[in-house]
């Protein structure tokens, strides 16, 4: 973990690939969108995390973060821009740290997703959990429609995507969440 931090804080090395693959840029932006759907104020937490984890060399400011997120080609405000591996690793570190903080909420949401699919919510009397899940999913769909280009996905498919992202967030909220998220994004193809 220390080595990873050092690598993130270092200036871009000559042996590191210049830019991150398109899929990594899309996936990271989507995960951040899911965090924002959980809490509209999450952007402040993300910016705080940059300073807390001392990642200013990779992401110097809020505007730099906004520019990075706009390199997602599915965004309405898509802009060509640099998105280095070091910057992607910094975002992975921020996501893993935030996910760790909201681990309890993520557990509740993943359990509720399963209970809804199995139709057990009424029997268990956990309607308030379903309301919590619905609030997140509605916000995710709303944010997706505001920020992304018109998508062929229906509202239900977008909700299903929102559920998948919650599971992804749960799996990066553990002790080795950062490594797991990075490996799952790149399948080990990037160092």
């Amino acid at each position: 973990m220390v080595a990873e931090t050092a690598q993130v804080n270092q200036p871009k090395g000559t042996d590191e690939p210049e830019s991150c693959p398109r899929s990594v840029r899309i996936e990271l932006d989507y995960i951040l969108l899911a965090i924002e759907a959980l809490d509209y104020e999450a952007m402040e937490a993300i910016v705080d995390c940059i300073h807390y984890l001392q990642l200013e060399s990779a992401i110097p400011s809020r505007v730099a973060l906004w520019r990075l997120r706009n390199t997602n080609p599915l965004r309405v405000t898509y802009q060509r821009g640099e998105f280095t591996v070091a910057q992607a690793k910094a975002l992975v570190k921020i996501i893993a740290t935030l996910a760790q903080r909201i681990n309890t909420g993520l557990r509740l949401l993943v359990t509720t997703i399963q209970q809804v699919r199995e139709g057990k919510i009424e029997a268990l009397g956990l309607q308030q959990n379903q309301e919590f899940l619905n609030l997140y999913l509605d916000r995710f769909v709303y944010l997706h429609k505001c920020r992304m280009k018109p998508s062929p996905l229906s509202d239900q498919e977008l909700k299903s995507l929102g559920e998948d992202l919650i599971v992804q967030l749960l799996f990066c909220s553990g002790t080795a969440g950062e490594q797991r998220l990075w490996y799952s994004l790149t399948a080990g193809e990037l160092a």
Binding site: V110, Q114, F171
Partner: peptide
């Protein structure tokens, strides 16, 4: 196992590894 139980299994092994 459900997904949260799978996560806990993975996490217990990660804690052992670290």
């Amino acid at each position: 196992l459900n997904t949260v139980q799978l996560f806990d299994l993975m996490e217990s092994l990660d804690r052992l590894c670290t």
